[in-house]
Simulated assay, not measured.
Amino acid sequence: MDTLNGFLNNPAVIKFGTLLLWIILIVFAISFLRKILKKRIADVAIRYKAQKGIEIIGYVLIVILILLFFTVKNLEDYTVIIGLFTAGITFTLQELILSIAGSFYIFFVRVYMPGDRIEINGIKGDVIDIDSIYTTLMEMGEWVSSDNYSGRIVKISNAFVFKGPIKNYSMDFPFVWDELNVLITYESDRELAKKVILDQASNYLAEYTQNSIKKWQEMVERYYIEDSKLDPTLAITLTDNWVAINLRYITDYKRRRATKHELFERIQEAIKNTNGKVNFASTTLQLLKIPEMDVNLNT
Rank of each mutant, 00 (worst) to 15 (best):
S145V: 15
T3I: 15
I120Q: 00
I57Y: 08
R255C: 03
T299P: 03
K52S: 10
K260D: 01
G102Q: 03
L93S: 03
A12F: 07
F69D: 07
P174D: 02
G6F: 03
I24M: 08
G88Q: 11
W242A: 12
K289H: 04
A258Q: 13
K49F: 09
I30A: 14
N9Q: 07
F104H: 08
K73V: 05
P114A: 02
G58W: 04
Q200C: 05
D240R: 13
D189T: 14
P114R: 04
G151S: 11
T239S: 14
T18K: 08
D294W: 10
V182A: 00
D116W: 01
V176L: 14
K15I: 02
R117T: 10
T71Y: 14
R152K: 15
F173T: 00
R256T: 14
S212F: 00
F162H: 06
F108A: 11
Y186C: 09
M113E: 13
Y204L: 12
T233S: 15
Y48L: 13
T237I: 06
I89S: 02
I130S: 05
T90F: 13
L96V: 15
N5L: 11
L65Y: 12
E142P: 00
A244T: 10
L4G: 04
I128K: 06
E207G: 06
V109G: 03
A201F: 03
Y224H: 08
P114W: 04
K163L: 13
K215I: 00
R34A: 14
D129R: 06
I225E: 04
Q286V: 05
T86Y: 13
R152M: 08
I166A: 04
M140H: 10
G164N: 12
I46K: 13
M171D: 07
S99A: 15
N211V: 01
P174T: 06
Y223I: 12
